[in-house]
Design a protein around this nucleic acid. Structure first.
Lengths: 344, 344
DNA sequence: TTGAAAGCGCTAACAA
DNA sequence: TTGTTAGCGCTTTCAA
C-alpha cells in the first residue's frame, strides 16, 4: 500500500497540496465544495495525516510525557488511568516512561521526552530522587511540567498531591478517639516528603490530644508486608507495650494484621490498625483494614486538568505555580473499630 | 533558551552540518577528533537531537503504540509494566491508549497510532470488539501488530496468551480431585474467546473425570464481586445443590466467598472455591482463595520480545505468525484445600 | 574524511 | 478562494 500524502490527493483533484492541507484542517477560506471533494478523496485513498511531519513544522506534538516510578503499583497505574482519560478527551496522547524508582532511569526518561519534543511532562519522582536533578532542565527550556504525589523539594512547579499531613493526623486522631493510647507508627527510612508529612500528622495528633511521643513507637524501615510482620515481632520480643499501629501504607498494615493474628492478639479489641492508600485488598480481608484513601484516579484527572490550563498560558514559569492539595478520606473499617473503653 | 540544532554546532566548529550529523551518529567515516569536538560542543550548547525531525526523515519513530482496555485493572497495568520494561531496554518508547472497553474508542486509538506513525502496535481488544474491526487496516499497512491475552478472532497475527483452556481444566480437575462433585462455574455472557476457553476447560475436566454436565450449574453474567454474591444467593434460594464454585475471575470468587460466609457455609469443608487471575487480595483474604495465575508481567515481557523479533523481519505478514501460549499456574490455597472425604 | 544537496510531509506567510 | 513558496531538523546519497 503506497503511502498517501496531501500531494496525492491534490493530484487526484487537480488542485495544489496547500489547498488540500487547508481543506483537511477546515480552514475558513476554503469552499465547502472543495472541502467535501478533498475529504472524499482522502477517505477513498486511505489518507492518514502524518503527525510527525505536522509536529516538525508546527513545533507541537500534542504528546505529553508521563514519568512514573512503576506501573505495577496500583497507585501509579490508577493515576495514569486518570491522566490518560482526561488528556485523551483533550486530544493529547501519553508517552509513557517508568523510572523503576531509579534516578538514572528517571533522567533517561526526561532525556527521551526532551528529544521527543513532548508538549509537556507530568511526573512523580523516584524514591532515589533527592535533588531536583534532571527536572530543572525541563523548566529551563520552558516546557510545562507538573508533578503528582511525589514532588521534588526545591522546585517551584505546579503539582497535585493529597494532604498527607492531614491523612496522618486523621488516622492518628481516629485511633486516639477510639481509646488507643500507645500508637506505633511505622514509617520509612528515606527522606521523602510525603512520608515525612504523614509522620508529622501523627506527631501533631499526639500533641494535640496531649499524648507523649515515645521514640520507641516510631519505626523506620522499608515498606512491605514482611516488614510489618517483623515490626510486630520485634515490639513483642522487646516487650514494648502498644495498643495500635498506624502504618505509612497498606501492605505494611497487612503484615501487622497477619502477625498480630498469628500471635493470637485480637484486632481491634487489643490492638487497632490503620493503613494508608486504600489498596483493593484492605476492604476484602478480615478484619477489613481501616485506611486513608488517596483518591488516585481523581489525582490523575486533576493533574491532567491543571496541566491543560498550564498549556494554555504561554509562559508557564512566569505565574505562581498552582498547587492543588486534595483532601484524603479516612476509611474506618473493622481493624480500628472498637467501642471506647467504658462506653457501650 | 535558543533551540540548538546541528547547524549551530556546525557553525561553532566551522564544519558542515552533515559532518555534525554523522559525528553524532557515530558514523565510521568521521575522525575521532571531529567526533570528540562535536560531542563537546553539543554538550556545551545543550543540544538535544530532535526525534521528530529524524523520524520524519528516516520513517522510523522508535515508538510502539500500546492499546489496552483500561489501566486501572491490575492485569493490564502489570502487562504494560512488562512491555515498557523490555521495550525501554531496546530503545523504544510506549505511546499509551486506553479503549475503556469500547470499540469506538479503540478505533480512535488505532487511528491515533497510525497518524503518529508508530513503528508497531501491541494491543488487547476491548470486550465490545467482536470483529476484526480497525485492526485489519494495521495489517494492510504492513505495520507490525501483536496481541496479548484478548486476541481478535479471524486475524492471523502474533500473540501471547495463556492457555485459558488448561487453566480452566486444572482448576476444575483440582476441585474434582479434592472430592467436590457438583461444581458451579460462573462465566460471562459475552462471546469472548478467553472466557469460552476457560469454560471449555471446565467442561472437559468434568467429562474426563466422568462427571455429568449440569446446565443449572453453569451461570453466565457479568463479572463483579456483587455478581458472585448474587449467584450464591440464587443457587441457595433455588435449592440447587453444589459443593464447589469455579469463577472466571477473582472478584467474582471473592463475592462467592463473602456470601457463603454470610450464610454460614464453611469453606472449604462444605464448598470449595477457585478463582482466576491471582489478584493481590486472593492471597491476603481468609480463607485465602485458590486461583489461576496468569503470569502478567511475563506476558508483557514476552509480547515485547516477540515484537522485537517481528520488527527485525521486514515482511511481518509473510511469515506464519508466532503464537506463544504461556502455561498458567494453579495456586492451591485454603479455599479449596480440604481433605478428600474418607482420607486422612 | 568531509561537503553539497535533496527531501521526508506538513504549516503558514504572502501573493494573486 | 486558491496557489506559491519557504522551511521545520534531520538522514542519506553522491561527489570531492
Amino acid at each position: 500500500m503506497k503511502k498517501i500524502t496531501i500531494l496525492d490527493i491534490a493530484k487526484e483533484l487537480n488542485i495544489t497540496f496547500s489547498t488540500v492541507a487547508r481543506a483537511l484542517n477546515d480552514h475558513p477560506a476554503i469552499s465547502a465544495a472543495t472541502k467535501q471533494a478533498v475529504r472524499e478523496t482522502a477517505d477513498r485513498l486511505g489518507y492518514r495525516p502524518n503527525k510527525v511531519a505536522s509536529s516538525l513544522r508546527s513545533g507541537k506534538t500534542r504528546i505529553i510525557g508521563v514519568l512514573v516510578p512503576r506501573l505495577d503499583v496500583s497507585f501509579f497505574s490508577s493515576v495514569v488511568h486518570g491522566i490518560e482519560g482526561v488528556m485523551n478527551e483533550n486530544g493529547y496522547t501519553i508517552l509513557l516512561y517508568q523510572s523503576q524508582e531509579a534516578i538514572k532511569q528517571e533522567n533517561k526518561g526526561i532525556e527521551t521526552f526532551l528529544r521527543s519534543r513532548v508538549d509537556g511532562i507530568i511526573a512523580s519522582i523516584s524514591l532515589e530522587t533527592e535533588t531536583v536533578g534532571g527536572y530543572a532542565e525541563i523548566r529551563d527550556r520552558n516546557i510545562p511540567l507538573a508533578f503528582f504525589d511525589r514532588v521534588p523539594a526545591g522546585l517551584d512547579v505546579p503539582s497535585v498531591t493529597i494532604d498527607d499531613y492531614h491523612g496522618g493526623f486523621m488516622a492518628t486522631a481516629h485511633l486516639i478517639e477510639s481509646g488507643y493510647r500507645r500508637i506505633v507508627h511505622i514509617n520509612q527510612y528515606r527522606n521523602i516528603n510525603i512520608f515525612n508529612e504523614r509522620l508529622r500528622g501523627y506527631l501533631d495528633a499526639l500533641k494535640q490530644y496531649g499524648l507523649p511521643v515515645d521514640e520507641q513507637l516510631i519505626i523506620k524501615g522499608d515498606f512491605s508486608l514482611e516488614f510489618g510482620r517483623q515490626c510486630v515481632r520485634d515490639l513483642l520480643a522487646r516487650g514494648i507495650a502498644f495498643d495500635a499501629v498506624f502504618t505509612l501504607e497498606d501492605f505494611t498494615a497487612m503484615g501487622v494484621v497477619q502477625q498480630l493474628k498469628a500471635q493470637g492478639i485480637r484486632i481491634p479489641e487489643e490492638v487497632g490498625v490503620v493503613g494508608f492508600a486504600n489498596e483493593a485488598f484492605t476492604s476484602l480481608v478480615s478484619p477489613a483494614i481501616s485506611t486513608v484513601d488517596q483518591r488516585t484516579v481523581e489525582m490523575g484527572e486533576e493533574v491532567a486538568r491543571l496541566f491543560l490550563k498550564l498549556l494554555k498560558k504561554g509562559d508557564y514559569y512566569k505565574h505562581r505555580p498552582e498547587k492543588l492539595v486534595l483532601e484524603p478520606k479516612l476509611l474506618i473499617r473493622e481493624s480500628s473499630s472498637r467501642q471506647m473503653p467504658g462506653t457501650k
